[in-house]
Amino acid sequence: MSGLFVPMTKANGLGNMPDLLEQWAGSRSVARAYGRAGLPMEVIQFPETWIPVDAIRSLFEISARAAGDRCFGLHVGKDMTHKTFGLWMKYSVQAATLRDGLIRANQSSRFQQTGGKVVFVPGAQVSFWRYVAPPMQTSSQVQHCDHLIWPTIRFIQSYLGPLWLPEWVDVSYPRDADARLLEAQVPFPVRFGTPYLSMAIRNRDLSPRTPRPFGDGQRITFDAVRASEAAGPSNETLGTVFNTITLRLLEGQTDIDGAACQLGIGVQKLQRDLRREGVDYRDLLNRAKRVRAQELLSDTDMTVIDIALSLGYSDHGNFSRAFRKMTGVAPSGFRARKDQMQ
């Protein structure tokens, strides 16, 4: 990887973590955990938002300590399924066989996370489906790793049935004094200290054809998954900055100084990196504002003036002129058109 790059993932990977933390430790603990992880609470309402992988790891560790439970991440994951992760997983679960489904997931996981990957590794009698996480700056990834165990198993169960369990599971952290608490919670062997989260799958389970279609029968193509992510730049540097701007817009923050600080670099370096890619900060900010405005007009009942203020515009008129310039239609017209299509 070259240039400015921060591994990021979609906030839908948090599952019901905020609700579970509130149940166990109270609503104030949720706000404190998000604040300490450097994340706005608004990502709970907008789970398709991209957030730094290190932030989600930190959030899980902070939340587990607040909840006082070594297996907090595992409990979060137990209430999740592969469907939690959105369109790329729905596409992956529609293949004819588990082997083909794993290959689909490998190809499309970049629409869920950057910097990490899922890999299918064939073996003589047992094959492996592995999640290789991005390099981390946080001190621990125990809770984040654990919360992925059950959604990964449920993806495979969608092909092999609800009784299927892995031969064993590898986790991406060393065994410690509390490892027995995890082992007591799961009905399969756990191996510690590998570089990845991995499911061991018997080879005979890879090829039988799935006897039933997924969900409501609506077929999803790879092109549809790719189109769902068309709003953001595909370039790594531009994607990192664009997603950072979008995340900060959740709190109405638009300044370049704050964006550079969140990226861990100086303003001048950020400007140089963007110039090297042929854009400036204002270009990406306007693009992020357009996408965010369209989401709010389509998916919420917020008034146009409230949307304008949330995006840093001083009044309704400035926002309407900017939106019309970017899209060719006024905000009210865009919302009316969306309502007619639904």
Results as ranks from 00 to 15, higher is better:
S332R: 15
V225A: 04
A179M: 11
L102R: 04
Q268H: 13
T221W: 12
R204D: 11
T138K: 02
M17G: 02
V132W: 06
E229V: 10
L59W: 02
D283V: 11
T254K: 13
L160W: 00
M89E: 07
I220E: 06
G193E: 05
A95K: 03
L270R: 10
F192R: 10
V291R: 03
D299G: 01
S140A: 14
T194F: 11
V6C: 03
P134A: 10
I201Q: 10
V142Y: 06
M17K: 09
M41W: 01
G232C: 04
L309K: 14
M326S: 13
E277L: 11
K117D: 01
A227Y: 07
R219P: 00
L98K: 02
A105R: 15
Y34F: 15
G161A: 02
K269I: 05
W168T: 06
P52D: 08
A37P: 00
G161F: 00
M41V: 09
D283N: 11
Q112W: 04
V119E: 07
R219G: 02
S140K: 15
M326H: 08
P331Q: 10
P189G: 04
S310A: 13
Y34N: 05
A330C: 01
M41I: 14
L59A: 03
S172N: 12
R154P: 02
A259C: 12
Q218V: 12
K10H: 10
T300L: 12
L274S: 06
P166L: 09
Q253L: 12
P162E: 01
V132N: 05
D216P: 02
Q94P: 05
S127A: 08
T303E: 10
A177E: 15
R324K: 14
E22H: 11
V142I: 15
E236A: 12
E277I: 04
D69F: 07
W50L: 08
Q112K: 05
A31P: 00
R65A: 08
Q294E: 15
V121K: 15
T210L: 10
R226C: 05
T244P: 00
Q340P: 00
G35P: 01
S298W: 04
K83Q: 11
V121L: 13
R226E: 09
I153L: 09
Y131G: 03
Y173Q: 05
T254Q: 11
F323N: 06
D176N: 14
K269C: 00
M8W: 01
K90H: 11
A259S: 09
T152W: 11
V43R: 13
L59P: 02
L181M: 10
Q268T: 14
D176I: 12
I56G: 00
H316C: 00
H144C: 02
A133T: 03
G116S: 12
G312V: 10
F128C: 07
Q294D: 01
L21T: 07
P213I: 10
S314C: 06
P162F: 00
A95N: 05
W129C: 02
K289G: 01
R276I: 05
L311R: 13
I149C: 02
F319W: 09
P189W: 06
P162M: 00
S234Q: 14
V267T: 14
A224N: 01
P208K: 07
D273K: 13
L181E: 14
L87N: 04
P233T: 10
Q94G: 11
Q268N: 13
